[in-house]
Design a protein around this nucleic acid. Structure first.
Lengths: 191, 191
DNA sequence: GTTAAGGTGTACTGATCGGTACCTATTTGC
DNA sequence: GCAAATAGGTACCGATCAGTACACCTTAAC
């Protein structure tokens, strides 16, 4: 039961869950895809739910690390970083295997508010909200909580729209919107 | 095979699909919930997919009818209607059985872009985009396509956030953002 | 009254679901 | 070298999946 074996299983499971969905992915498919036996799989993960939670934890770590790092590469000041977030998103949307946000999907497939998977998906969004709010505060926004939440709304909306509509360019529209909102939040103490 | 019987089946199936999800809802559960026999169910709907598509069609009709009617009740001018959209959304979020957007969930559970269910979910979003773009045009926005899409982003983001986060009030934040975006779109031909 | 047609229910199909019993192969401690 | 423990594989569990074969029962035509 080497721990790196476990990590490898989580990595592969994450790929399949992201590609095919949670309910649509059976443990048999995962076992076939990872090349490991069912017994070994259940030695590492007590239930399918445990495996999903582990995959979500990895995804949260991967995504936020990549996102924040990329945003830092793209811009220097907090204000510019808020705006550049949507360039990073645009890059993500253009990736080959892009299938939307895993946490939106997790929240959609496990809807009960107390369900551990739903809770974990919510936690991911909370951390992103915190990130945006923080940037908004550092940028000097009058009401950083509001601006942070608005940026988050634009981000989530852009993801959903990128999945479902090909007719518009959500990342660019969201970026333009964010610019207007930021400008407004910096200029007007009373809107 | 009375047609109103079929409608009743669609109505009940819609309720269950919305509450429990698509993959997580078996035909046996639907049969039990509707009180009809399995044979009758399959006389009305050739496959589960057909039933899902019928449910989505009904949902699209119901939701857009309700939404547009409610927005018209809340405001008179196109500009005010764009803003009041988010009050209507807020009312929806506060409803007892609110479980997010059925089409986001459908698109999340059936991800292949050519899948009939995914296509139908996309069509719903396209119609809403058209609605917002139309309002933006009537309101006199400089670039109604962009503003319409931005309003749509805010709406989708608000829905997702309403499902996953209790810490903020997405409908109100989205409304405030929409106000800023609208003002900007009316005032500034070059932003 | 008889017969044909179509709606309805029961009971089933093979496949797959999440999960486990049990056996074997390998490693570990001494 | 040997025993104990642990990792891994096969083959299965009952439940449920989407979908169907077939008998039953009502209705309508004549």
């Amino acid at each position: 039961m080497r721990p790196n074996k476990r990590d490898e299983l989580v990595r592969k499971a994450l790929k399949v869950f992201y590609r095919d969905g949670f309910h649509a992915t059976g443990m048999d498919k995962l076992v076939a895809e990872t090349g490991v036996s069912k017994t070994s799989m259940y030695k590492h993960f007590r239930t399918k739910e445990d495996l999903i939670l582990a995959a979500l934890r990895l995804r949260d770590e991967n995504f936020r690390n990549w996102f924040m790092r990329r945003v830092e590469e793209l811009a220097d000041t907090p204000a510019d970083q808020l705006i550049s977030s949507f360039d990073a998103l645009g890059e993500w949307f253009a990736e080959d295997g892009f299938r939307g946000c895993m946490f939106i999907k997790a929240g959609a497939e496990f809807q009960e508010k107390e369900h551990p998977i739903h809770v974990q998906a919510a936690e991911h969004k909370r951390l992103l909200l915190e990130y945006f709010t923080d940037l908004a505060r550092k940028a000097g926004a009058f009401d950083p909580e509001s601006l942070g939440c608005q940026i988050l709304l634009l981000k989530e909306g852009a993801i959903v729209t990128a999945v479902l509509l090909k007719s518009c360019d959500p990342a660019q529209d969201a970026k333009a919107a964010a610019r207007v909102l930021l400008e407004n939040a910096l200029a007007a103490p009373i809107q």
